[in-house]
């Protein structure tokens, strides 16, 4: 599971590739600056879409922003708030959140060796761990190998902090905008979440099973929602994912 090399603009050569004499604090600040690049801007806009969605679901501004910070993983948040808002079973919602959280395990497994270094203390690992979600992970994966090992932890925590701040600001902006802009702008905000999820899924898919799972899950979703509202996502995940694995395994292609 390696991010596509062309995921975003390459971290081309520039001033920031020189890490000689850089202090941990400066490494942190350079990480924060990642929030001002393309992935940070997309994440801000996606968080705005989530903010609009949360407002529509009846969440307060405080809880919308709080949820963004406490999870920092849009799929889990949208699953859960949708479930709460539609009055579905909280147990099914919790189970679905658990399943979406599993996506983070391989990301942290793969990032762990990159973070090792003098300044990688236990509590810094805990903080760094919270930032592991698609965007921060991809940026870490892409940038950390170029950073001296003793500065990587600070740099990654900087990346995470900047991206969290971008999503909190995005949530707030989306929540506020949703009530006061033309309907078509609000509709665009609400479309950002699904298109960003879809493209991120494709970007982080590795192998045929993942791609088949995207197609099967996508097509199973709506009919299952009509037939079993509240359990549709779990069922679509288990049925679609199992078929995808079965097909790929029986073909012997991975």
């Amino acid at each position: 599971m390696t991010p596509a090399e062309d995921y975003e603009l390459p971290a081309g050569p520039g001033r920031n590739d020189n890490w000689q004499g850089v202090t941990p604090r400066q490494a942190f600040m350079r990480g924060m600056a990642v929030a001002l690049t393309v992935p940070g801007i997309i994440l801000f806009a996606s968080a705005a879409g989530y903010g609009a969605l949360a407002r529509d679901a009846g969440f307060s501004l405080g809880n919308s922003v709080f949820m963004m910070g406490v999870f920092f993983a849009l799929p889990a948040q949208v699953v859960l708030l949708d479930q709460i808002a539609r009055g579905g079973s909280l147990m099914a919602g919790t189970l679905a959140v658990t399943l979406t959280g599993m996506r983070l395990l391989p990301m942290s497994v793969l990032l762990m060796p990159l973070l090792k270094g003098k300044r990688a203390t236990r509590w810094r690992y805990l903080v760094a761990g919270h930032f592991i979600a698609v965007t921060a992970w991809m940026e870490g994966w892409r940038r950390l190998p170029l950073v001296p090992s003793e500065l990587r932890m600070d740099h990654f925590i900087g990346i995470g902090t900047g991206l969290v701040l971008a999503t909190l600001a995005g949530t707030w902006a989306g929540f506020e905008l949703a009530g006061s802009v033309p309907h078509v702008v609000e509709a665009v905000l609400l479309l950002l979440t699904p298109i960003y999820f879809l493209l991120s899924l494709i970007a982080s898919a590795s192998g045929e099973a993942d791609r088949l799972a995207i197609v099967l899950g996508g097509f199973l979703g709506p009919p299952l929602y009509v037939a079993f509202p509240g359990f549709d996502l779990l069922l679509a995940g288990i049925i679609g994912g199992s078929i995808a694995r079965f097909v790929v395994r029986s073909r012997g292609t991975g």
Partner: peptide, 18 residues
């Protein structure tokens, strides 16, 4: 790999539901 495929299909279903 199965867990990965299940969670991928789950998020894809969320996309079409939205």
């Amino acid at each position: 790999r199965w867990v990965r495929a299940v969670s991928t299909a789950l998020v894809a279903a969320l996309v079409t539901r939205l």
